[in-house]
Simulated assay, not measured.
Amino acid sequence: MVTLDLKDLAKYPFLKESQTYIGAISSSLEHYLESTGGRVAIREAMLMLEHALSFSGKETPSIPEIPPEKEAVMTIIATYPVSRIMVSCAQDRMLIERLVRYQAWVVFAFLQDEEPEIKRFIRRSIGLPETGMDISVIDYIPVASRMAEERWRLVNRVVEKGKVRIRPEEYDEIVRERLRYIMSRNLPLKVPSRICDQVKPAIERIKAEWQKKVLEEFGQVEESAFPPCMQAILGALTGHGHLTHMARFAVTAFLHNIGMDNTRIIELYGSVPNFDLRKTLYQVEHISGRGGTSNEYISPLCATMRTHGICVHPDSICSRVTHPLSYYKLKKRDLNKQKYQKQVKDPDESMKKRVESEGDQSDTNTPDCIPSSTDNKYKDEKST
Rank of each mutant, 00 (worst) to 15 (best):
M1P: 10
V2I: 15
D8Q: 11
L9W: 00
P13D: 05
I22Q: 03
S35I: 03
G37C: 04
G37M: 10
A41E: 08
R43T: 09
R43E: 14
E44V: 05
M46A: 13
M48L: 14
L49N: 06
E50K: 05
S56H: 07
G57S: 06
T60G: 03
P61K: 04
P64G: 07
P67L: 03
P68T: 09
A72K: 06
P81N: 13
R84Q: 11
D92Q: 12
Q103K: 09
A104Y: 07
W105T: 07
L111V: 09
Q112E: 15
D113S: 14
P116G: 02
I118S: 05
F121C: 00
R123P: 11
R124C: 01
P129C: 00
G132H: 01
V143M: 05
A144G: 06
S145K: 04
R146H: 00
R146A: 09
R146G: 06
E149P: 00
E149D: 12
R151K: 11
K163P: 10
K163H: 11
P168I: 15
P168E: 15
E170S: 13
E173R: 10
I174N: 13
Y181M: 08
Y181R: 06
R185Q: 04
P188W: 08
R194W: 07
D197I: 13
K200P: 02
K207L: 15
A208Q: 13
Q211D: 14
Q211I: 12
L215M: 09
Q220I: 14
P228A: 13
A232R: 08
T238V: 15
G239H: 14
H240I: 07
A247K: 03
A250M: 04
V251G: 08
N262K: 03
E267G: 13
L268R: 06
G270R: 11
F275S: 11
D276S: 11
Y282G: 00
H286G: 02
H286V: 00
R290E: 15
S294K: 10
S299Y: 02
P300N: 08
M305C: 14
I310T: 06
D315W: 07
V321W: 01
H323E: 07
P324W: 07
Y327H: 11
L330V: 15
L330N: 05
R333C: 08
D334P: 01
K337C: 05
K342I: 04
V344Y: 01
K345Y: 11
D348Y: 10
E349H: 06
S350Q: 07
S350A: 15
M351P: 00
M351F: 06
K353R: 09
K353W: 12
E358D: 11
D360W: 03
S362A: 10
S362D: 13
S362P: 00
P367V: 07
S373Q: 09
Y378M: 13
E381A: 08
K382L: 09
